[in-house]
C-alpha cells in the first residue's frame, strides 16, 4: 500500500484544496449575479470585475511561488 509523506500529503491537499476553493468562488459569483437580479449586463459586470479580482488572487500566489516567497 503506497504511503504518503507529510509533504506530499500537504502538497496534494493544497493543490486540490485551492482548486476546490476557486470553483466555490465561481459558484458564489454566479449566485451573487443571480440573487442580486443584476440582469444580463449586471451579470457580465459582476463576473468580469470579481473574476479579475479572483485572477489577481491566483496570480499573487503564482508570483509569490515563482519568487520563492
Amino acid at each position: 500500500m503506497p504511503t504518503f509523506t507529510e509533504e506530499q500529503f500537504a502538497q496534494f491537499g493544497l493543490t486540490f484544496g485551492i482548486s476546490a476553493f476557486m470553483l466555490y468562488m465561481v459558484f458564489i459569483l454566479f449566485q451573487l449575479a443571480r440573487e442580486s437580479k443584476a440582469g444580463r449586463f449586471g451579470t457580465f459586470v459582476i463576473l468580469l470585475g470579481l473574476g479579475l479580482g479572483m485572477m489577481g488572487f491566483v496570480a499573487k500566489g503564482i508570483i509569490k511561488w515563482v519568487l520563492g516567497g
Binding site: V45, L50, G53, G56, K60
Partner: peptide
Amino acid sequence: FEAWLALGGLLAAP
C-alpha cells in the same frame, strides 16, 4: 492587488 484588478474589471466592462 485584487481590488485594483477588480476595479479595473468593473471599469473595463462597459
